[in-house]
Every structure is written in structure tokens, then in C-alpha cells.
Nucleic acid binder design. Structure first.
Lengths: 221, 221, 221, 221
DNA sequence: AATGAATGAGCTTTCATTCAT
DNA sequence: CATGAATGAAAGCTCATTCAT
């Protein structure tokens, strides 16, 4: 009787059916509301209002609340992981790659703060049922990629070897996340216009992270 | 006709009215349930069951769900901030104090993981209405104390001066938090019995944090 | 294990056990609260607070809410009916007796407004279960007594014969009640000090009632 | 995302949005249940069942119980006051107008007894919070209109001048109300089929009221 | 007698989900 | 596709009643 599937998004051949504009609006709205209020606090009514769409339409495009939020998760993780992979597989030293990771996340944050919050904060709070198949693995994947960067940096003598890569990766992402949170909450008052302020955060964070991980003898880039 | 106030908890002199045992049980249960499911997902019925107490008793001691969770917040923050203050005002170098902070939080985590999760995770997710008067300030306070430690370390030449203390403090706490989250989610698989594993995390984290903040010339402790 | 019966109030012989002071306080408080908020709106907690007595004590003296409120009803009606009977069986013309009825109710109102409200207003609103054995009959009794006065006045040629006595009696009591309500609500603003104001109401009401009922030829008293 | 406002009910021009049928059903049901059981005794579940409507729909159209009952109040008072105004401003002597008032209320009672009970009985019992803005004023308004009729009758020499109009008006409405109550409770047993019985009540009441208020010299109509 | 903590059924309110249009 | 009224299960809150002290 209509869509309602996970939307593989592309057909296999010929005529590419474009994603309906309103479906997109709902998904975007869901990201914001979800980020703002969390899984249980996010009401379908809120999403519909935020998307400026009729109540019932949400159920036209998504089976139910869970499927909607799962889509949100999936989409955001897909983007993040793709980016991390690109950085990981690209050229450059471990230090450059870590700087790239910090930079990317903070850049995303500049244009879509809620997207970052969804990824970082909802990981542990969202019911397991929902994340089934998506989050724990994907979160692990994200941490894993960063850990890989670190591991190879250790192997190449660029980063200190006494740290467990996974643990270090988690710490780096956590540092990123909480710094952004501080920004959201106004702890770090913008001494400069927001745009530049965020760039300053980016630099400092990268510096701190690198200093924390770099091998004693290694040179600054 | 009964309690139901915010319970300033301490009198000024002589006859200290002891906190009713069941009130305490409810508060403890609330910490756990709250940590587990977040603000909106936490049902009064769950708290009551967890505390092995009748439904209605929760409302005997607390006005409503909000007041209960606010009490949880207040209590946890009070404990954490007192500990941070003690470390801040105690003796030792900045490095030792930062190590102390990491150690304390991870130690608390060993005995009461949910308490830590409430503090760290609920900060941004809990409705503003609820946190009014409690969280934003208290969170800021906690960050502020750590930032002070860092600032004095910078002034004493022990820590690098190019980092904004508040930002660095947030990053440190974030690194702590996400590492613990990783532990919870099983990302960092215990290579050793849990107890020792956590101690290993403590060491590595402290090492990383210190390396990230220490001034180039400073010696290892 | 204690009182808790309907309290026949007097023993049969010798040693008269006096009604406990606090039982009385509860009963009085109940009259006020009941009058103020009606059956469903009247909480045991309110009664206890109003009586400055511990919550549980109410249940020491009364089986349950119903028994308490039934006692209130019974007591008030007993008083009212006794007074009406006394007037009815006393000397005087029908006109004098009707004046007496108006006067009595308004006088009671002066000292215990809530008692009057209980009698007059709760009649139709209180659940049948509660009034069982008390109200419908007693209310009917009260109306009946006034109707008797009217009937005898009609038979004696003093009052007009075209009115159904019961109907007329109800109307008289209703006029009384609503006037008092008007007073409570401040519709009839006291042009004089409360005391005198009420006396003025008494006169006017009696005059109006008598004029409404008196036979065309009958003289003013 | 829907109705839920006080429903000003009438637009100014062209396309009149009709009141949803079910909203109306709920309001009607509420009048009955409210009349039957009073403010505190009236359960939303009862209203929904009586209106043959799903529980939740009540909350679709009304914010909460208070708003629902306030709407009931407002509607009933609006009707009554409009009718009283029409009588007041229409032609006829004061006596005819008073007869009209009695007749109107009793006629309404014939078709919608509960409506009358809501107006007359709930005035003093309903919590102040609820009536705020609606009842005290409107009740005063109703009494005021009747008082105006009386005042003008006094000025025209038709009615006795020694009675305070407001007081007399309250008494008249009270007589009406209690008579109807008596009818409800079966005090005045129908000597005739209900229909005629009520008409007999109407006549007797009007006669009594007029006799009570008419100036000594004035002729019978 | 007196107290007030403790219990839990019942009612209000919310909100995911369905359905007629 | 789009809409929003309609439904009802689940969660929050109240309060009569019991019970240990």
C-alpha cells in the first residue's frame, strides 16, 4: 500500500525514484528532536510539527517510532563512518589523520550540531531493542577505525606504544564530545564570533590530543 | 502532613533527624533506574520496584517525578564536587591532582557505575525545566574546579600554556566519561579480571591526560 | 479494640462516658471541610489537618470516610429537625412559626454557616450510599415539618389554600438557602456590619415568604 | 496540532466551521455526568462512556478535566443569561416577566434537568479555581438581571418597595431550584403524569413568587 | 489513645498507532 | 500522498485505608 520499508533508497536499475521531499523533512526533523530530547522524550507529534507535516504522514513513511529513529541512527552513522574510513584510508601521518578526525567532527558540528549529539550521546541511552543491528556495532566500528589509526601510528613509531588503542580512541572521541557539550551549554564562552571560536576549539583539541598520544621523540608536524 | 520537601538533610545542632531509611532506598533506586533509562524512560513504578517499596511511598517522600530526579542530581553532584574540591585544595602538583581526579571518578565508577553515568550523561539530555537550579551550574562548577587545577598548573609552569583551561577541563572529563562508556559497552574487553582491568584503564587514562597537558620541558613525576 | 461504632453517645445508666474531645474536634472539622468542598472533594487529610489531629486518629474514631460524613449528616439533621419540631409544636400562628423557621436557620447560619450548607446543599449531591438511612428521609422530614405548618395554616384560613404545602415548603427552604448562598458569595453586599446585615436579611426574607403564602384576607401580625 | 482551545465557536463571516459532532457529544455528556455527580465525583471515563466516545478523545478536544467542566459551565450560563436577558428586555409587566422567568427555567428543566442542576447547584460547590472567570460573575449576572426586573417593578409601583431587589432575586431563584430538587428527589409525588405535574408546579411557583413580591394595592393579572 | 509511614487501587493525562476521508 | 480525528494502553498522581510503634 506504499513505502514503509527501510528504503534501500536506490532501485537497481533505470529510473531512480528520488526520495520524497517530505520523507527527508521528517528525517531531518527527527534528528533534531531526537538529539534534543532523547529516545523516550521524543514524541511523534514533535517530529511532525518540527517537519511541518501532518501527524499521520510520519506513519506513511515509517512503520513506527522505532523504525523512524533507527533510520536516523543508521543515516548518521553511515555518514560518520564513511568519513572516518576516508580519513583512515587516505594519505598522511597518524597525527594528520587524528587532526582530521577532530576537524571533521567539529565541522559537522558547525553545520548540524544535533547530528553529532545523536551519535555521541544516544549511544548508551537508547533502548537496545532499537539499536539492534545498528548502534553497538556501528559505534564499535567508529571507535575501531580511530583505534586503527592509532595502532598504525604506534607501529610506525609515531605514537606512544604504552596505550591500548581502543581505550585511547574512546578517550579522544569523548574529549571531542564533551568539549562540544561545553560549547552547547555555554561553558566555553565565545571570545570570538562563533565561527572562529569553533575553529579555535578545533586547534586546541587537536593539539591536546596529539600531545597526549605522540611518542616522546616524535617531531611536531 | 509529611516530608515532601527538598530535605536540606542537615540540621544545625544537637538532634540530627536521621533520613528515613526508605527515602534513602528510593533515592538509591532512582539513581540506578535513572542511569539505566534516562529521564523520560525512567518510570516511577520501576524506581518503586527497584527500591522494594510501595508505589505510593515515592510520592510520600517526593512531590513528583521531577523533584525525585532533581534530588538524585543534586545528591550526586554534591558528592562529586566535594571530592573535586578536596583534591583541588589538597597538596600536590597539578599533575598529581589531575591523576587524582581521574582516579577518583574511576574508583567511584567501580563501586557505583550508575552514579557516574547520571552525572556525566544526563547533563545534556535532561529537560531544562528539571535541571533548573541544579545541573548547569553544578556541571559548570565541576568543570570549573578542574579548570582551576589546570590554570594553576599553567601558572606554575607545570602545564602547557596554550590551552584554554575550561576547554581542556571539559576534554579531560569527556575522555573519562567515554572511556567508561566504552567499558560499559564492552568495547574494551577485559583482558584481565574486572578489578585489575579498571585499574589499568585508570593508569592509561592518567598517562594520556598528563601527556596531553604537560608543558614540554616538565619532568615525569 | 476501641470505639468506632456510630456512638449512641449516651450509655443507658450511671456513668456517662463523655465524648472524647478530639472526636468532637474531628467532627467539627469535618462539617467545615465537607461544607466547603462537598463529599468527593473532602479529603481525610483535610479533616485531620483542620482538626489539628493526626491522620490516623480519624480512623480510630470512625470506621471510614463514609461513616464520618454520615455522622456529620446525622448530627446536623438531628439538630435542625429537633428545632423545626420545637417550632412546629410550640405555640403561635402559622405566620409566626414560618418567621421562626426563617429566623432559626439564619441564626444558625450566623454562628455556623457551614452547618447550614451541609444540610441544604449536600442533599442532592452526596452519593446515595452515604445518605442511606439519613438524608433523603431526613430532608423529607424537614420539608415535611414545614409543610405541616403550612397545611395547618391553610386549614385555619391563615394561609392561601391553592398551594401544595410540600411544594411551598420546599420553595421556602430554597429561598432561604439561596439567599444565604448569595450572602456567602458577596452578591448581597453588607450595607451594614455583618451582624445587622444578617438580621435585615432575616426580616426581608420572612416578609417575602409570608406575603407569598398568606391568604388574601389575613391581617399582618 | 489540533483544537483544544476554548472554542470561541463563531467566526465573523463566510465559512462557519461547524463544531465537531463529537465535541458536542462530549459536552452534552459532561453536562449530564457533572449534574449527576458534581465536580469531584465526575470522572472523565464516565463522560467518555456517556458520550460513546473513546477515552482519549476527551483530551483531544479539551486540555483537561477543568477546561471541560469550565466549558460546560460557560455554555449553560450563556444560554440561561441570554434567555433571562430576552425576558428582561421584552415587553410586559414585571409580574409577567417574573412568571416568564419561572416558566423558562421550569421548561428547560422539563427537557434538560441536568442543565438546570449544573447551573443552580454547582455554583457554590465547584472549586474556585475552576469557576475563575466564569461562574461567580455569571451567577451574579443572572441574579442581577432578575433583580433588575424586580427593581423596575418596584419603581413602577407594581412590586413592593421594602425588599432589596438582589436579595429578592436570589430568593426567587432559590425557591425555583429547591422546588425542582424536591421534584427530583420525589418529595413532591406526581399526582398527575409528569408533564402536567410540572406545569402545575410552574403555576404554583409563579403564584407564590408574585404574591410574595407584589405591592399590596396591585391587581392580579 | 495517638501518630504518621506505608500500601495500592483508581483516576487523570499522555502518546503511539490506526483509520476514514 | 496527505490529513488529523479517533482509539486505548500505559504511565503519573491522589488518597482512602492499614499498620507498626
Amino acid at each position: 500500500m506504499s513505502p514503509r520499508q527501510s528504503r534501500p533508497s536506490a532501485g537497481h536499475a533505470a529510473v531512480e525514484i528520488p526520495e520524497p521531499e517530505k520523507r527527508r523533512a521528517i528525517l531531518h526533523a527527527a534528528v533534531r528532536v531526537f538529539a534534543e530530547r532523547g529516545y523516550h522524550g521524543c514524541r511523534i507529534a514533535d517530529v511532525a510539527r518540527e517537519a511541518r507535516v501532518a501527524y499521520g504522514l510520519v506513519y506513511h513513511y515509517f512503520q513506527n517510532k522505532d523504525e523512524l529513529l533507527e533510520s536516523v541512527f543508521a543515516e548518521q552513522w553511515t555518514i560518520l563512518i564513511a568519513a572516518l574510513r576516508a580519513i583512515d584510508e587516505g594519505p598522511g601521518s597518524a597525527a594528520e589523520k587524528l587532526t582530521g578526525v577532530c576537524g571533521f567532527i567539529i565541522d559537522v558540528y558547525k553545520t548540524a550540531p544535533s547530528a553529532v549529539r545523536v551519535l555521541m550521546l544516544e549511544v548508551t541511552r537508547t533502548p537496545n531493542a532499537l539499536r539492534a543491528g545498528s548502534t553497538p556495532q556501528t559505534f564499535a566500528t567508529a571507535v575501531g577505525i580511530v583505534a586503527d589509526v592509532i595502532r598504525r601510528g604506534q607501529e610506525g613509531g609515531e605514537l606512544r606504544r604504552d596505550l591500548e588503542p581502543v581505550l585511547a580512541a574512546a578517550a579522544v572521541l569523548g574529549a571531542l564530545e564533551m568539549t562540544l557539550t561545553g560549547l552547547v551549554m555555554g561553558l566555553v564562552r565565545p571570545a570570538a564570533p562563533p565561527e572562529e571560536e569553533i575553529d579555535r576549539v578545533k586547534e586546541q583539541l587537536a593539539a591536546m590530543v596529539l600531545a597526549g598520544l605522540r611518542a616522546p621523540g616524535a617531531r611536531d608536524p
